[in-house]
Structure formats: C-alpha cells, structure tokens
Design a protein around this nucleic acid. Sequence first.
DNA 1: ATGTCGGCAAAATGCCGA
Length: 258
Amino acid sequence: MKIATWNINGVNGRLPVLKSWLAEAAPDVVCLQEIKTSQATFPAAALEEAGYGALWIGEKAYNGVAILAREGTPLEVLRGLPGDGKDVQSRYLEAAVEGILVACLYLPNGNPQPGPKFDYKLAWFERLHRRAAELIKLPEPVILAGDFNVVPTNELADIYNPRSWLDDALLQPESRAAWRTLLAQGWTDAIGKLHPGQPMYTFWDYFRQRWPRNAGLRIDFLLLNPAAAKRLKAAGVDREMRGVEKASDHAPVWVELG
DNA sequence: ATGTCGGCAAAATGCCGA
C-alpha cells in the first residue's frame, strides 16, 4: 500500500500535472496541501475520473488540504485540528483508508519571524502535539503526512546550505524544538529511517534557480506510529515532478507499507 | 533587498502569501 503527500500549490492550476503523476505513481492514498481553492471549486469530478475519491477542506486562495483514495472515498475521522475554535485556516484533515488512519496537515509557514504568524505556527504545533499524542497510542497504523514547514537540522540531509535561511521561520530553534517534541512521542520519519544522511529534499523555491542547482529543503514528511513503522517497506521522493512544466515547488513524498 | 510562482480583485496590473 502506497501513501503519498504532496504540497500541490494550487490543485486547479496543477490538475494536468497531478493527473499525470497519479497515473504514473499509482498511489493508494494521497494527502494534498495548499489546494488553494474554495470548498465549491475543488476538482472532485476530474479526480473521480482519474480513479480517486476525495475529502477536502477548502479555503479561498490560501491553504486547504485534501485526502484522495483509489477505489472509493476516504472515511472522514476529523475535520480541523482541535484546540482553537477561532482558527479558521484550512490545514488539517483525518481519514481512515483500508484500516490506516491518515492525518493530512499543512503546518503554518510562520514567516516573518518574530511576529504573530510565527506565534500562530508555534501554537498550531502545540495543538498538533496534543492530537498526535492521542493518535500514536492507537493500535492500528497511523500516518501523519504533510508539509511541516520545518527544516529539522542544518545537515546536508535537510538543507543544501542554511546561509540564506538563517532568519527564516523554518529553521528557528523554536520550530525545531517543536519538531523534536513531536518525534519524541515515538513517530518514525520514514524517509529519514530508510535514507539516513541522504539529501532527500522535497521543496525547491521558485526563486534563484534553486531547482536547477538542487538547492532544496526537506520539509515534507510521513511520520509513522509503531504499528505503521512495523510495516514500512520503502520510501522515496518523486523528484522528477519538480522538473516538469508548471511544476509545484514541492515534490511528492511516499511510503510503501507491506 | 532580491528573485518567482498561484490565486484573486478588478482588470492586463498589483496585491498577498509562500
């Protein structure tokens, strides 16, 4: 069973790219972030034609997440991250597919920092800690998948060169501490586990020729609870999707569970 | 500071967020 996550950066503008990747990669489950569409304008019919049922939380122009499943619609478990009734941004969705609980998340970027956007990022992270602490206890496989907007370390595995990113919210000590607190609950970073020390970048900024220079960051992750980690067979990044015409600035990341 | 995208409002250009 193949489960993927992809920050698609606009699902409607990216539909041809998404459909060609679905046909090629044939994932069973896909978590999408930054669908950038209102609830009513999500391309559900086109994805249905491509063989995928969908759940989604839209938001006009910004954010938005979706979970796609081949052969049927995912069963919704939770819509929105608990803990702040005033948070109106569409960033979190949970669904069950073939016995696996999948949480699709788009963690706030947090720039500029310091400031209210960075405060929102850290508060959102704490809410995620609380939800994840419940999920990791479940006996069935659970996967937290998405764009976590954190570069865990300055190592080459996570970033080509931190120099021009040192003031960025993605590299701040507070963001990294929140990341480590999450992992310390017992989650397995699938790519880190199977490709230790390798530069498995998932995002290349549109600016400054960063894709041609492979000047990437690793900020999209699939985190597995112990039941899911036991079944981990393979993991990878579909880098070639960053090089196509009209590419998203992120590439798909996937795991294969046995 | 800059660079480049997607989406949107109100128009072929500027803004926001990333």
